[in-house]
């Protein structure tokens, strides 16, 4: 058992769940992943960051008496009484291979790599499945209109678990298409930073080499003095730099 999952206490009212077909009694406060460990599973596949940031632990489940099929991340979804659980360690959706440097940031690039994008039915099963609460249908709609930047923005929180693709009746690979949209946006559609370009030129010219060589040669005492005398740039507290 993992030290993180809060054992060592008397489990309160245990509830029944079915993991890969077998019934176990587990504490109701645990996320699915911790409940599997409680039941004695040693997790190999289907376990990653344990905090909802990776796509390693997609899980499909039904609840006894309910005809619906649900999905979620095993590290984030808390168990419920009568759950029937199956792990989906990855979903084998199509991924296009491309040379980003040869693409243009236009709808043609998206449709060229993923022609099935235009088959989206707009049914919203993807949005309903998304454990990140991303409106997948909305970013797919943006993509179909060729609005790459909007697709990138709306999909930004995607962790690429693949649950959208798993539920899609049109067999889209939404998360892979959105990744291409973001890469096109980052490379081509966002304005360059003038200050970064200048800095690269200064580094190429060797402008900082003498300063760095000097710092490297200083004794600990001299470095300490320089460090303590640093001026701290004031935080830009009024009016965020961002907005």
């Amino acid at each position: 058992m993992h030290p993180e999952i809060g054992t060592g206490k008397t489990p309160e009212n245990l509830i029944p769940v079915h993991i890969m077909g077998t019934r176990y009694m587990v504490p109701p406060s645990l996320p699915i992943m911790a409940a599997m460990e409680y039941a004695g599973y040693r997790l190999l596949r289907g376990c990653g960051c344990r905090r909802g940031l990776r796509r390693a632990c997609g899980t499909a489940y039904r609840i006894h008496g309910d005809p619906q099929l649900f999905s979620g991340l095993a590290c984030q979804t808390v168990v419920q009484s009568g759950m029937y659980l199956a792990q989906i360690p990855f979903f084998p959706a199509r991924r296009a291979s491309y040379d980003l440097t040869k693409l243009e940031p236009s709808a043609v690039a998206l449709f060229g790599a993923y022609p099935q994008l235009l088959r989206c039915l707009g049914c919203g099963a993807c949005t309903k499945a998304c454990p990140q609460d991303i409106d997948v249908r909305a970013y797919m709609a943006a993509g179909m209109k060729g609005d790459i930047q909007r697709m990138a923005d709306l999909s930004f929180d995607c962790i690429m678990c693949g649950l959208c693709a798993a539920r899609c009746p049109a067999e889209e690979a939404q998360y892979n298409i959105a990744l291409l949209a973001r890469r096109l946006t980052g490379r081509y559609l966002v304005p360059r930073s003038a200050h970064l370009e200048e800095r690269l030129e200064e580094i190429r010219r060797g402008d900082f080499d003498a300063d760095l060589a000097e710092l490297k040669s200083l004794s600990k005492q001299e470095l300490t003095a320089r460090y303590s005398a640093r001026e701290i740039e004031p935080e830009d507290r009024l009016g965020s730099r961002e907005d």
Binding site: L100, V190, S193, H195, I203, R241, E242
Partner: peptide, 23 residues
Amino acid sequence: PLIVAWLESLGVMFDKQADGTMV
């Protein structure tokens, strides 16, 4: 700084102001 530029060339979306200045 070279790496920030490299990552951007691969399509990483850094937080930026409208004129391209890095946040």
